[in-house]
Design a protein around this nucleic acid. Structure first.
Lengths: 222, 222
DNA sequence: TGACATTAGTTGCGGCGTGCTACTTATTGC
DNA sequence: GCAATAAGTAGCACGCCGCAACTAATGTCA
């Protein structure tokens, strides 16, 4: 718990609630901290007038996780369900932390499908984080930000498989990636125990095509 | 202005701010109302404790537009820039109204690229609405909800062209639509002045494929 | 040391979706 | 009847995608 979170709480006030996500051993995890009374909570901070919400959320994330978040977006504000500090209104921010970053002290990475006891509002925010990531992954480099600066293509594919919720075909994945000019090979290789070593790549988008957004009907349902 | 909007304003409180969108003569419009002092504002309502934000937003939309919104989603809450009633925190909701609905009284549809003088926060919310619609149009029937219950395929294509910001090819558009089993033909035809009459269709998704989300790299930029 | 397992990375093929051109159909207006 | 206009369709070529099969490089173990 940081000074931000333990500052004077005001009934009827609003909070920024943080859902920090990372990949740990192939599963999506969210960062959970302990409140003053020992309960598990998502990191949160009371909103003060005149401050940018985005800036406040980034500052909170830096306080909690030590490093700055690799990517972040706001979720849908909610006043439903019980907040651990009785915040009237929660403005959720969903952030992504590189899987290479060190685990912050006084915090635990919890698998999103095996969360500890959380206040109902925080549980809803945590379980909804994956949907938020899925909503943005086609227009923002969410999967890339879940990885360290250099990564193997298999790691990138695993990140996409986690976000999409289904297995992908190696050759197709790599051809599509090649065509998009998003990654740049480094001259490093990593040996992961057995098997052939993998080349390391870096996220380095090169092509700036204005648009060419295509029509997509296949995901529309009711 | 409804009773909701003119209710006691409290400094430091939060509002729901509504960006209602509709297509008028081929351009995206947002609904603007007049405040008590004659200024142009987006419809808004003070948030009261214990009420669902989504419910409150839908109620506000019903009060303002008469009919219920065809589709709605929450945007990113913001505390930046000046709000017309000095709301500390705005929770924006972007809604879509069928282009067939009647224009509500005491309200004006304004082209989003030719807005009247608005408070800075409201201007930012209005101009950001198109991005919100674009973010959701691949997973929700946003374009369909911009249209009346029955519509021609040319109207649907125009809605998509407006959202995507580019022209589409008629044959390709129809083939893709056919393959998605999203619309159902009616036995009505509409004659639009000159030219061959167009068959009317209804949004009626039939196929429920679980997932098959595909990898999309082409929109990821920086 | 050689066979095997394991993981990375590539190649070629078939099918489907998409962009394009060109065509047919049906209506209004002169 | 004929031009103009807009809806709707057909055929073709190219590209993307899933798939299977292959090569390459490492570790393991008998």
């Amino acid at each position: 718990m940081t000074a931000r979170t333990s500052s004077a709480r005001r009934r009827g006030s609003s909070t920024i609630d943080l859902v920090l996500c990372a990949v740990r051993s192939g599963r999506l995890h969210v960062l959970v901290v302990k409140s003053a009374d020992g309960k598990s909570v998502l990191p949160y901070a009371w909103i003060t007038d005149g401050e940018s919400l985005e800036d406040a959320a980034r500052e909170l994330a830096r306080d909690i996780a030590g490093s700055s978040v690799a990517w972040m977006t706001a979720g849908a504000a909610t006043a439903s369900r019980r907040h651990p500090a009785e915040s009237a209104l929660s403005v959720p921010y969903v952030g992504v932390i590189s899987s290479g970053a060190a685990t912050p002290s006084d915090a635990v990475w919890c698998p999103v499908d095996a969360l500890p006891a959380l206040a109902p509002r925080h549980r809803a925010l945590a379980t909804g984080a994956l949907d938020t990531l899925r909503l943005h992954m086609d227009v923002a480099p969410v999967a890339f930000r879940l990885l360290p600066n250099v990564f193997t293509l298999s790691e990138l594919q695993q990140a996409y498989e986690l976000l999409l919720g289904r297995l992908l075909h190696k050759a197709s994945f790599r051809r599509a990636l090649q065509a998009a000019y998003l990654v740049e090979p480094t001259d490093e290789w990593r040996s992961e125990g057995r098997g052939r070593p993998a080349q390391l790549f870096r996220y380095q988008p090169r092509k700036r095509r204005g648009g060419h957004r295509s029509v997509r009907f296949d995901l529309i349902g009711s």
